[in-house]
Design a protein around this nucleic acid. Structure first.
Lengths: 162, 162
DNA sequence: ACGAATTGTTCATTGACATAACAGTTCAGG
DNA sequence: CCTGAACTGTTATGTCAATGAACAATTCGT
């Protein structure tokens, strides 16, 4: 029974102490994803940050930069750079909002939607390659548990329907 | 039926598109861990990087900086800073290696071991709090799947027919 | 009408790395 | 033994994403 260890939980690895922490495993796993996804996205002129923003705006047309910054958990000043970059390549637009001259309504251009669909598919493929050692069910469980862990105890029991 | 959604997979969230990617869920989850753990560690004068190094040296006495850099996947020049920091507060030592004057043998001082045990426990508690929405079994599965995803196709199956 | 709050923006700064070059040391082969 | 390649630790410098603090323009509350 001591014969073939699952290799996934190698106690002889020099960083075995750290892998006992979920956070370390998260970091290590994310680093791997980040490298592969960044490389893939850079081929189409995107970074992880701009990819994420593009996706959020694509599915939330008319959103403001402030709101986008909340969603992506990046400060407003950081969003400017991201939006600038996406606007410069013509995939995203800042249009005036009728009622309020302080903010812009963000929207994705037709070309932007095309790029988004392409990038989305590419990242999906990249992730599939990365997680080839997991079967479909495991990947789904992983994603689900991560989402749960990411949201945490969302404190607000749900009594704030805006 | 539309009443109480599991909240864990909230399709109305503005970044729902992104949560469909495992990588995004990883990032989000890790960010949360990073914030909490960093805060906790800073109380005892540690950062995540120094904490990790301390743990690896504690369980791998006599290790060299080069080897440590491989394990933590940080370049040698980056390790210098980490080791400097740990040595300055007296939890880690660089001692001469008999046979080879190029490298140092790293080791953790008694006080260092005490700090490590304390930090280890603190991080464990912090993680437990963070993942309170997961039961013990889920946390274990999450950790296991992450480790698997982090290692990926470890390539070294033995056959590398070039 | 006026002070408080909001939005987007700029600029300086930070932190956590990487890169490149370097000195000291070891080692393999002639 | 000698010499050049390879290795270890180190320093200096650059990079990249993100933050914080300020600011102007605008809107809101009372």
């Amino acid at each position: 029974m001591t014969a073939t260890a699952p290799r996934t939980e190698d106690p002889t690895a020099a960083d075995a102490v750290l892998y006992r922490f979920t956070g370390y495993a998260m970091k290590r796993a994310y680093m791997r994803v980040q490298d592969a996804v960044s490389a893939r996205l850079s081929e189409m002129g995107l970074r992880i940050g701009t990819f994420s923003a593009l996706g959020v705006v694509a599915t939330n047309p008319g959103i403001s930069q402030s709101r986008l910054s909340e969603i992506l958990q990046i400060k407003r000043s950081g969003i400017v750079v991201v939006v600038d970059e996406l606007e410069r390549v013509g995939v995203l637009e800042r249009s005036a909002v009728p009622g309020d001259r302080r903010m812009y309504a963000l929207s994705v251009t037709p070309g932007g939607h095309r790029l988004w669909r392409k990038a989305e598919a590419a990242v999906r493929v990249t992730e599939a390659e990365l997680f080839a050692t997991l079967d479909a069910g495991e990947t789904e469980i992983l994603r689900h548990l991560l989402a749960k862990a990411a949201r945490g105890a969302t404190a607000d029991g749900g009594g704030d329907p805006e």
